[in-house]
Nucleic acid binder design. Structure first.
Length: 491
RNA sequence: GGCGACGUAGCCAAGUGGCAAGGCAGAGGUCUGCAAAACCUCCAUCCCCAGUUCGAUUCUGGGCGUCGCCUCCA
């Protein structure tokens, strides 16, 4: 069995092999923590989770790095409005991001580097680029010289002649020189860095500190002047720090392909003289109800909180985002689809539960045993074929029906039951929906409730509230009532 | 304007040169004290037109439609 992944670089499904046997270094573009992540962002993050899980299933030891962009124009603007430093501004959104990922059962990444905590690495890389003529200083800003990197555009398959034309102008959209306001009030800042570039397509590595930046805690010293990093450099610098110069896999949403990933390649390869990433994976957009890409400016902006407030189980959201469509096809968010996902989750859980509890009959049905084997193989092959989870899940449902019928008529013996349990493990390795409660959770909750009751009796309300808060973070809500303390899952 | 993707049942969606997975919703049934769960049955000439082929939903060309990217974006 061979894992094949669609590689944007080659535009084909290529057999995956890491540089070092058995070990995979994967870098994925994480959130810009200027707001809550929306469902489209979450889809991308869950796709990373799927890639990572399947690599693990395939026997690889995965080092997964996901950055947190905690400095960018939007953050600066918002922090300014709020009158706080960017560090303070970002804090609740970082927390919300981790809460969301937990609720969606994404495995934690190995490292979550933050841009503001890796300024030295970025400064070093920028210095290197200036030194070897791939970057230049212009009025305190530092720009990457695209003309110095002939293969620019290879990933997104855009040719440089087309880019230079500033193509949007032809459409009457916002041209490069236009100062037309951008939704969100970011216009003044976005206008700032457009002077003295050798070429319009050159992008900023470093932006000269503005007076406001100092107040916001967004300025750092560097040999080429005080300022702050441009957006792209963080990924190049941080991936190198944690994974070395060549990544096995770099993943992100399609909208990052150009210019972000293209710029990363240019920076990294110009600085390191080594291939930056061997496999580029891009997940498709989530569309809103109207069929258009979900984004803040378009208005269709749904967060996980919105969905859970509307009564959707985060695990159903996970299933919807991951299993209802292949990661490279557009998926449309709708109440009906979420409901369908919830039903599928319920059925799979019900099935897993039934298998676990069933008492094997005396004889095994040979046909059933063979079918289970077929489906396990087919499932594995579907995932190996560029992570086709929807297809794999289809096979599982087909078998679940057959197996349920077999259990109805007592035709599931010991061997079949064991095989079914393995199948459940197979699909849950990716879906992670079966385990509805962590083992021992009820006992643990009961213990904590007892401890909290003792604390309350002793009027140690600080401790009592601490326990309640801890449980709340794990998704357990406590309710004190006359009949005693009740607890329930809230996500 | 340039580049690219997609169009499969009421909805979501997988897929293949040879009888079109799966899920949701719907209809009927089995089981059940009733219900739930589970199971059974039913529910698609794969956007249109040409071409290649013994055979096309799948390949090629054209059309129509939807969407994405072209320096804010997962």
């Amino acid at each position: 069995m061979t894992l094949r992944l669609h590689n944007t670089l080659t535009a084909t499904k290529d057999v995956f092999e890491p540089v070092a046997a058995g070990q995979v270094g994967m870098y994925t573009c994480g959130p810009t923590v200027w707001n809550y992540a929306h469902a489209g962002n979450l889809r991308a993050f869950l796709v990373y989770d799927l890639v990572r899980r399947h690599l693990q299933v395939s026997g690889y030891d995965v080092t997964h790095v996901m950055n947190l962009t905690d400095i960018d124009d939007r953050i600066l603007d918002q922090a300014m409005h709020a009158g706080v430093t960017i560090g303070d501004y970002v804090k609740p959104y970082v927390a919300a991001f981790f809460e969301d990922m937990g609720a969606l059962r994404a495995q934690p990444a190995t490292h979550y580097p933050r841009a503001t905590e890796h300024i030295p690495e970025m400064v070093e890389m920028i210095s290197e680029l200036i030194e070897n003529q791939h970057a230049y200083i212009a009025d305190g800003d530092v720009y990457f010289r695209i003309a110095s990197f002939p293969t620019y555009g290879a990933l997104s398959h855009l040719d440089r002649a087309g880019l230079r034309a500033g193509a949007r102008i032809a459409q009457g959209g916002r041209g490069l020189g236009s100062a037309e306001p951008v939704p969100g009030g970011a216009s003044s800042r976005i206008r700032q860095d457009k002077y003295d570039k050798e070429s319009v397509s050159d992008f900023a590595l470093w932006k000269k500190a503005q007076p406001d930046d100092e107040k916001l805690g967004a300025a750092w010293d560097a040999p080429f002047g005080r300022g702050r990093p441009g957006w792209h450099i963080e990924c190049s610098a941080m991936s190198k720090r944690y994974l070395g110069v060549t990544l096995d896999i770099h993943a992100g949403g399609v909208d990052l392909m150009f210019p972000h990933h293209e710029n990363e390649i240019a920076q990294s390869e110009a600085a390191n003289h080594k291939q930056f990433a061997r496999f580029w994976l891009h997940s498709e957009h989530l569309a809103d109800a109207t069929g258009e890409k979900m984004s803040k400016s378009a208005g269709g902006f749904t967060t996980l909180r919105d969905l859970t407030d509307a009564g959707h189980d985060p695990v159903a959201v996970r299933f919807f985002l991951l299993a209802s469509a292949h990661y490279r096809t557009r998926l449309r968010l709708s109440t009906e689809s979420l409901h369908a996902a919830a039903e599928q989750v319920r059925r799979l859980r019900e099935f897993a539960d039934r298998v676990q509890r069933s008492t094997p009959s005396d004889v095994d049905d040979g046909d059933l045993l063979r079918r289970i084997g077929e489906v396990r193989t087919g499932y594995r092959e579907a995932l190996d074929d560029d992570l086709n989870l929807p297809q794999g899940v289809g096979l599982v449902f087909e078998l679940a029906r057959e197996a349920n019928a077999a259990m109805d008529s007592g035709r599931v013996g010991e061997r079949s039951r064991d095989a079914l349990l393995l199948l459940v493990d197979d699909f849950d390795a990716h879906l992670d929906i079966v385990r509805s409660e962590e083992p021992g959770l009820a006992q643990e909750v009961a213990r904590l409730i007892a401890e909290r009751e003792a604390a309350r009796k002793g009027r140690d309300f600080g401790r009592a509230d601490q326990i309640r808060e801890e449980l709340r973070e794990k998704g357990i809500a406590l309710e004190d009532s006359k009949e005693g303390v009740r607890w329930r899952r809230v996500r």
